[in-house]
Write a protein that binds this DNA or RNA. Structure first.
Lengths: 197, 197
DNA sequence: TTGACAAGTGACCTTTCGTTCACTATAATA
DNA sequence: TATTATAGTGAACGAAAGGTCACTTGTCAA
C-alpha cells in the first residue's frame, strides 16, 4: 500500500507542473491534493527537484516504451482512407487523454529550463512524429498508394500541421472539436495532393 | 530621462520572463539587471503583475502595429522563387531578432495561465501566419503561379511546418542554421507540389 | 509479543518573495 | 530662491516558499 504514494505524488506533480509550471508549483498544495501534509512528501522524495527529475524519468521511459522502438510503429495503411483513419485515431487519443495532454503542457512549459525536457520536447513535438510517418509513407509509396516523393519531407509536411492543431487544443480546449475536424480535412487534402488515384 | 526607466523595466521583464517564466522571475534580479534596487521598480509599476500586464499590453500593441491591418500584408510574390525569398526573409528576421524570440518564448510559457497570452499565442503561432499567407496564395493563384486550390488550406499547410521549425530554433538555438535550411527545402518542395510550371 | 521499519504528522527553521515606507538627491517650476 | 514633483535608496515587514526533525502510528517479520 505504501509505494503507491510515490506514484500518486508523481501524478499530482504532473498535474500541477502542467498547470502552473515547475516554479509556480509549491509542495504544500501538491501534498494537500493528495491528502497529506508537506513533510509527508519528503518521505518519498528528498526535494522538489527530485520530484521533477523522477517525473521526467517517467515521461522519458513512457515515451521510450510507447514510441521508442520499431515495434511500436503503426501498421502501414493499405488505403488512403486508412491513413486518415489511423491519423484520426491517434489524434483522438492524443487530444483527449488527460495524461498525454499534461505531458505536452509540462514539456512546453519547461523546455527552456531543463535540458532533458528540451530534448524530449523536440522528439515529442517534431522528430518522433516525423520519423513515425516517414515509415508510414515509405510503406504507402511501396504499395503504390502515395506518389513517389521524399518520404521524410512528406512526413514533415503531414505531421507538423497536425501538431500545430494539437497545440491549439492544449491552449484552447474549447476549440478541440473544431481542430479535430480541421485535422481530418487536412488529412484528406494531403491525400488529394499526394495520393495516387 | 525619467520615463526611460519604465521602458527599460519592460525590456528587462521580457528578458527574464522569457527565460524563467512569470513565476520564476523575481523583482530583485530584475531590478539588479537594471542597476537599481528592488524598491526602485515600484516607483514605476505598482506590482509584479502590473509589469506583466504592461508587457502584454506592449506585445499586443506591437503585434497590432506590425501585423494587425491589411496595410502590413506582404506584397504578392510574382514568381515561385519570390515566394521562397519572401519566406526566407521573414524567417531570418523572426529567428534572429532577440526581441521577437523572447516574445515567442513568453507566449509559450504563459499561454496556459493568462487569457490574453493565450489569445495572442494562437494568433502569433497559428492564425496570424495562416491569414497572411492565405492572402499571399490567393494572389499567387490569381497570377497563375500556384495551382488553383483552397488558399486557406494551402496557407495552413505552408505556415505550420515553418512554425514548427521556428519553435525548434527557440528550443535549441544551435539548430537554427539547420532549421533554416530545412525551411528553404520545404518551401521549394511545397512549390514543386503546388506551383504551376 | 516484541522489535524494526516505513508512512505520515505538526511544529519549526531559514530563505526568499513581493511590497511598503521614511528618507535623500536631483532637477524642473513657480 | 524656495518649492515641489520625480527617481531612487535601504531598511523593514509579513507571507509563503523549500526543507528538517522529533514524534506517532500501523504493519509485518522474527
Amino acid at each position: 500500500m505504501a509505494n503507491d504514494t510515490k506514484e500518486r505524488i508523481l501524478a499530482a506533480a504532473l498535474e500541477m507542473f502542467s498547470q502552473n509550471g515547475y516554479a509556480g508549483t509549491n509542495i504544500r498544495e501538491l501534498s494537500a491534493s493528495l491528502g497529506l501534509v508537506k513533510s509527508g512528501v519528503y518521505k518519498h522524495y528528498e526535494s522538489k527537484e527530485a520530484i521533477w527529475n523522477a517525473l521526467l524519468d517517467q515521461m522519458i521511459a513512457y515515451y521510450a516504451d510507447h514510441f521508442g522502438s520499431a515495434d511500436h510503429l503503426p501498421p502501414v495503411p493499405d488505403s488512403q482512407e486508412a491513413l486518415t483513419r489511423l491519423t484520426m485515431q491517434m489524434v483522438n487519443i492524443t487530444v483527449h487523454d488527460e495524461k498525454i495532454i499534461m505531458t505536452r503542457k509540462v514539456l512546453t512549459l519547461e523546455q527552456f529550463r531543463d535540458d532533458r525536457a528540451r530534448e524530449l520536447a523536440t522528439r515529442h513535438f517534431l522528430t518522433g512524429l516525423t520519423d513515425m510517418f516517414t515509415h508510414v509513407f515509405t510503406g504507402m509509396m511501396d504499395k503504390g498508394l502515395l506518389r513517389k516523393d521524399d518520404p521524410k519531407m512528406l512526413a514533415f509536411s503531414y505531421t507538423t500541421p497536425i501538431s500545430a492543431l494539437i497545440h491549439l487544443c492544449d491552449r484552447e480546449p474549447e476549440k478541440t472539436e473544431d481542430a479535430i475536424r480541421k485535422i481530418e480535412a487536412f488529412s484528406r487534402h494531403f491525400l488529394a495532393t499526394y495520393g495516387v488515384k
